[in-house]
Simulated assay, not measured.
Amino acid sequence: MRRSTFGAWARGVTLVVLALLWLVPAYLLVVNAMTATEDYTGTPLWLPHSFALFDNVATAWEVGGFGPSMRNSLYYAIFCAGVAVLVATLAAFAVTIMPIRRPVLWFWFVYAGTLLPLQVFARPLFLGAVAVELYDTWTVLTVVYIAICVPFAFFVVRNFLVTMPPELVEAARLDGASWSRMFASIHLPLARPAMAAAFVFQFVWVWNELFFGITLTISPQVQPVMAALARLQTDGTAASPPVLMAAALLVSVPTVVVFFAFQRFFRAGVRSNL
């Protein structure tokens, strides 16, 4: 009894420490983002000396030109993550439910896309985009983001589908249901928690993605929001640290909103993969 109590106490302390390690940087970001530029001393402030958050956000929005880039990232994150999750669900259904040959081989063929560093794809994607005249277009980032998001979403949804009882498939086949009808009427509704969890993961990844955003595009009308944030820090606009932190806080809002909007499905989807 004492050993189990000590284990529970140790886990609780560990979780509190990990939560503090995550919350302290977030707290410093918020406190310094709301500090007026003239009150910023050059070192991180632990207590707010003033409240100029909205002024700093307005300055960052105007100087950084976040309007087009926020619109671009919303499109990339919502559309690309949504299409990738749907494609991944179809692939997971085929590998897990349908009687295809060598399902393990197909699983690794799709999942292998997550095993290589993204920098490996930079040169061929850049040269290919230039060759087909898609460099610096919405199309090239849309295709790349969808392709990169599919493997991990496939892994999440596939792990959920393997837990479903095989009697569902047998009963549906006895009733004469086709594979497409079975997917649309049975497995797709049941897989919604896993799909929602995969969507949250991929939305956050696409929203925070910077490497391909600055490798395959150059114009602000096409680049994602993280490219605009990087440009605000490096283009010599002399934006103060509070303004930069307010901009970082601003661009993180959509990911927080999506997480809380999908948290019920996210928890259910994550539990199904544990």
Rank of each mutant, 00 (worst) to 15 (best):
A92D: 01
F259R: 07
S180N: 11
G82N: 12
L74H: 03
L174M: 15
S219C: 00
W138R: 11
T215W: 07
N56F: 01
R192H: 02
A268E: 15
V83Q: 06
T14E: 10
H187V: 12
A239Q: 10
A194K: 00
P241E: 07
A131S: 15
A238W: 15
Y75K: 09
G7T: 09
M182R: 05
V256D: 04
A129N: 11
M1W: 14
L18M: 01
T142Q: 04
A19K: 06
V17S: 14
L29K: 03
L15V: 15
Q221S: 14
S252P: 08
L28W: 07
L161I: 11
P241C: 14
T142S: 07
A88M: 10
V243R: 12
L45Y: 00
V17D: 06
W22M: 13
Y135W: 11
L18P: 02
Q119G: 11
W9V: 14
F183N: 05
L74G: 10
T142R: 00
V63E: 06
T139L: 12
A184L: 13
D175V: 05
A122N: 08
F262N: 03
F54I: 14
L174A: 09
P166G: 10
V200Y: 04
L18F: 05
L29G: 00
V95S: 08
F121L: 15
L188I: 04
F266Y: 15
W106A: 15
A194Y: 09
W61S: 14
L45R: 09
A84G: 11
Q263F: 11
R267T: 14
V132D: 10
V206G: 06
I97R: 13
V30A: 05
L274V: 09
G65A: 05
A246Q: 10
R2S: 04
A239T: 10
A92C: 03
R71N: 06
R231I: 10
V143Y: 11
A81V: 12
T255L: 09
F203T: 04
L116K: 08
G64V: 06
L229K: 10
L105A: 15
F199M: 04
F79N: 00
A81K: 02
L134N: 10
V243K: 07
V130K: 15
G128E: 13
S180K: 09
S4T: 13
T217N: 00
G12M: 13
V206I: 14
R264L: 01
T215E: 13
G65K: 02
A247H: 01
A131T: 08
L86G: 02
E209V: 01
D175N: 06
W205C: 06
V256Q: 01
W22H: 08
S69D: 04
M195G: 03
E38F: 08
T59W: 02
L105F: 15
V132L: 13
T142H: 06
L116M: 14
T255P: 02
V17L: 15
T139P: 03
A227Q: 01
R158P: 04
R101T: 03
R181H: 13
V225N: 02
V17H: 01
W46H: 09
I100C: 12
R2C: 02
Y75R: 00
E209Q: 02
V258A: 11
S50M: 04
R71C: 02
G7F: 03
V225Y: 01
Q221R: 15
L229C: 05
T59G: 09
S178Q: 05
V200H: 00
R192Q: 01
R264G: 02
T5H: 12
